[in-house]
Nucleic acid binder design. Structure first.
Length: 425
RNA sequence: GGAGAGGUGGCUGAGUGGUCGAAAGCGAACGACUCGAAAUCGUUUAAUAGGAAACUAUUCGUGGGUUCGAAUCCCACCCUCUCCGCCA
């Protein structure tokens, strides 16, 4: 959420910053609404002030004279009544304006950082780092072939249970998924993160608070009879964990790691990544999340990204990191570093983690603050996948595939998985 | 799902129609004492909107209503707790 005062007082600044995203945002309407709202607010405030003073006089008069029905008093009461009517008229107008303003402002995305590369779409993202040796042989199998050969998952049967884009992990596949979750949670919680296991269903307010609503309601699954949605990412419950709080600055930063299933409708991606583990309606993810002091989010952003990277390094998976350009940034983010893992079958890097600094954008929507020099200020929030489990599995299968059809398990994962290779039965 | 109790500041908790934005305590900040600390004493300490500030207004779960005036009375909703039922 952007600051309404900023929009009111400096609309062109707001428009300029938003336009870095490569789209035109019309602030004028909001600007005018806000000015009008302020005007009405001042009017109401002065009327209320008068009416309040009058009430006090009436109260005193009653106590002094012990008579609540003198003619003089009735005249004063009439006067009070007139104030009341006027105030309620203005308040009705204000309520309508507030609703409109809230609706419009909550549709505006965050400002892109000045450090983010300028650009319109993903083609303008900038690679900032490459790690490991990407495997570049021909005739490598895709992970869904490997998975089928080794009986790691079954997508056909899963359509009986649900529909396409759902998967059932079987045998070693399920075991590998579980091993990855435990491995990642252990690494992060040994590195100063507090582990949380949040609810998978979240209310509308929580989705609004982290930025998924109101604009992206079509991306999430909604429960029919309750104000509850299947959470698309643990970022949502983690943000809401401290909703409406003023956090003691001494305990900042708060660093959380959470495993959660994630549910996404993937509307508009028909026909893309229909095979395997890359794009599913339900997938598992280990998420990193920071609540930090507003002066420290830039360093925090580097740190959270490094923490996500550490998993790829430990698993010995080649990857690169990408600085997301202004036109490709997510709604709530001011700057994002994506980590992309090498998938040798398709000879390309695929996103496996997205590490974003949302500055005070989510904190403002969720009202999460701290005290700095006796003033309340919004904190900064950061999130990063550490990592998406399904895509990690895909990368392990493809990068670890052996000529005999087996898959080598990364050394760091062996104690969790219980074996160095996945072989045909 | 049935019955009952309750939602007040960072926290605990008093307050049932008028100087109540709210006692008291805890916590926190500053100061005094101290070589330093603890203890003690003193002062300060809710948020939001508007304003340079003085200040003004709003907020006691949420939304309505009664009243000149509502934390307090009335209605609806939400949430929490206890007991019963059901259930992993």
């Amino acid at each position: 959420m952007l600051d309404q005062k900023l929009i009111r007082e400096n609309p062109s600044f707001v428009e300029d910053n938003l336009s870095l995203r490569g789209k035109v945002y019309d602030i004028d309407f909001i600007h005018k609404l806000s000015l009008k709202r302020k005007e009405i607010d001042i009017e109401i405030s002065s009327l209320q002030s008068k009416s309040k003073k009058l009430s006090k006089i009436i109260g005193q008069e009653i106590r002094n004279t012990n008579n609540a029905n003198s003619q003089e008093l009735n005249e004063l009461k009439d006067k009070g009544n007139k104030y009341k009517i006027k105030v309620s008229e203005f308040e009705e107008k204000k309520r309508i304006l507030d609703k409109q303003l809230q609706d419009e402002i909550s549709k505006l995305p965050n400002f892109p950082s000045k450090d983010a590369p300028l650009g319109e779409n993903e083609n303008n993202n900038i690679q900032i780092k490459e790690w490991g040796d990407p495997l570049k042989k021909d005739n490598l199998k895709a992970h869904w072939e490997i998975g089928e050969n080794l009986n790691l998952f079954d997508s056909v049967k899963s359509t009986k249970i649900s529909k396409s884009r759902f998967i059932t992990l079987t045998g070693n596949g399920a075991r590998l998924e579980r091993a990855l979750v435990n491995f990642m949670l252990d690494v992060h919680s040994n590195n100063g993160y507090l582990e949380l296991m949040p609810p998978a269903l979240v209310n509308s307010e929580s989705l609004q608070g982290s930025g998924q609503l109101p604009k992206f309601s079509k991306e999430s699954f909604k429960c029919a009879n309750d104000d509850l949605w299947l959470s698309p990412t643990a970022e949502v419950p983690l943000t809401a964990f401290h909703k409406n709080e003023i956090i003691d600055p001494k305990i900042l930063p708060l660093k959380y790691v959470a495993y959660s299933p994630c549910f996404r409708r993937e509307a508009g991606s028909y026909g893309r990544d229909t095979k395997g583990l890359i794009r599913l309606h339900q997938f598992n993810k280990v998420e990193l999340y920071w609540f930090c002091h507003p002066n420290k989010s830039l360093e925090a952003h580097k740190e959270i990204t490094e923490d996500a990277e550490s998993i790829l390094k430990k698993l010995n998976l080649p990857y690169r990191s990408v600085d997301i350009c202004t036109g490709d940034l997510g709604f709530s983010s001011s700057r994002t570093f994506d980590l992309e893992v090498w998938l040798p079958s398709s000879k390309c890097y695929r996103e496996i983690s997205s590490c974003s600094n949302c500055l005070d954008f989510q904190a403002r929507r969720s009202s999460i603050r701290t005290k700095i020099d006796k003033k309340t200020s919004f904190i900064h929030t950061l999130n990063g996948s550490g990592l998406a489990i399904g895509r990690t599995m895909a990368a392990i299968l493809e990068n670890g595939q052996q000529p005999d059809g087996s898959v080598k398990i990364p050394d760091a994962l062996v104690p969790y998985f219980g074996s160095s290779f996945i072989k045909t039965a």
